[in-house]
Simulated assay, not measured.
Amino acid sequence: MVKCLTMLLGLFVMVNTSNAQQSENSFKIGGAVRFNLMNKSWVENKTQPEMTWDTWRLNVDGSQGGIDFSFEYRFYPTFDTHFIHHGYLGYGLSDDLYMKLGVVQVPFGISKFASHSWWFQGQYYFGLEDDYDMGIKFDYAGIDKLDLNFAYFRQAEPEGPSAGGVTYGNAGAGRYSYDITPGSVMIDGETVQASIRELNQFNLRAAYHLSQALEVGASAQVGGIYNSIHNESEWSTAVAAHLVADWGKGWNFKGSWISHNYKAKADDGRVLDIVPMGAYGSSYGVMAKANTYAAGIAKTVKTDFGPIKSLQFYVDYTYVDKTKADFEDMQHLVPGVLISAGPVYTYVDYAMGKNQPWLNSSFGKGLGAGDPNAEWNKRFNVNIGYYF
């Protein structure tokens, strides 16, 4: 595996520049500041509604000598954590082949997002939407109407600080996208330790454009879940099919099906039905196997209300069908509107979830065994972001 990565790095350095795309030298610094206003249905006290500082971020993008660079670092005061979002070197090996080396988005499912809302679709919460890892990625566009992406990731992206770290079982959870992290899970009422993490992952994604307005695609992912106690990996898999369509005046549809199997073992050797995953400084348990169905529809309307130039109305829905018979399924429904006004983007969402980990009176519970008596929890959320 190391030899393969070394060869790819050598290709990056030694490629014939006469055949590569050359970018003009440039350098840009940007970022964003975002705030949240929220009201949770499961909280009954005078603190509701509440306003929080969601995030602030720093972006640096540039190009010099034909080599591109992109970097983003995020700070989340509410969660007491900060971490890299992405950071890579990019190079055009030819007119049809572009390489990214570093922390890049995993090519899987609908790109760049499977969702319309601020909340993502349900698969984000177990690492299969807008995921970022550390490795090398190639984008190939040399076949008419077909885009191919293939990648190798040695490991998950570097993590920042987490809420309490090992003391509270959140080791490795300071990150943007959900990844498998060391932690503990419940098996038949017993707390079991799992010293596991992601290692050596391969991805392949194909998207075929039937027309400019209609895309169909398929993705495959296989990677190791390494247990440091046993010094060995189990091979996990995920596959996906997707459809993206635009029609009429401003209509858009995104639909996907995903099947995953996070095959992993606990420190005592037992196969895990629930694996620990973490992001934003905290960890929770996620079902090892499931089929996920997600669909979203949106309508964009051009406007001229002062600085407001467009409104996008949408409804996103996810159903997670957990494979284990006595696990309770998860549902996620988010109607809302995106208000675009120059550099300010405002998401107004009424998020509803049943066994959804972030729409839960006990944070994180829902994607594991779930609650058979779970109710539809609701959160009215306004996210206001200024991007520069």
Rank of each mutant, 00 (worst) to 15 (best):
I180H: 05
Y132M: 05
V192D: 05
V216Y: 08
P158F: 02
G135I: 04
K145A: 05
A213L: 13
R154F: 13
S184N: 03
M134D: 11
A220K: 10
N227S: 01
I229H: 14
T181P: 00
V216S: 05
E190A: 13
R175H: 02
L199M: 09
Q155N: 06
G160F: 10
Y226T: 07
Y176W: 12
N227F: 03
Y178F: 11
F150K: 02
N149Y: 09
G164W: 03
N227W: 05
H230F: 10
G164C: 03
G164T: 09
F153S: 06
L214W: 02
R205Q: 14
A220G: 07
G217I: 05
Q201E: 15
S219C: 03
A171G: 06
A173E: 04
D131L: 05
E190Q: 00
A173I: 08
E129N: 03
V216M: 03
Y152P: 12
R175S: 06
T167L: 15
P158V: 07
G164Q: 04
R154Y: 15
V166K: 14
T181A: 12
S162W: 02
D179I: 14
S219N: 00
K145S: 11
I196S: 10
G165E: 12
E215G: 04
T191K: 13
M186A: 13
L199H: 08
D188T: 01
Y152D: 11
L199E: 13
A156F: 04
A141Y: 14
D139L: 15
Y132E: 02
G160C: 04
A207Y: 11
F150E: 02
I187G: 09
N203C: 13
A156K: 09
D130L: 02
N149I: 05
A213D: 15
D144M: 07
Y208D: 06
I229G: 06
Q212W: 12
E198Y: 04
Y152Q: 01
Y132K: 06
I196A: 10
A151M: 02
A141K: 15
Y152S: 01
L146Y: 07
G172F: 01
A141F: 13
Y178T: 15
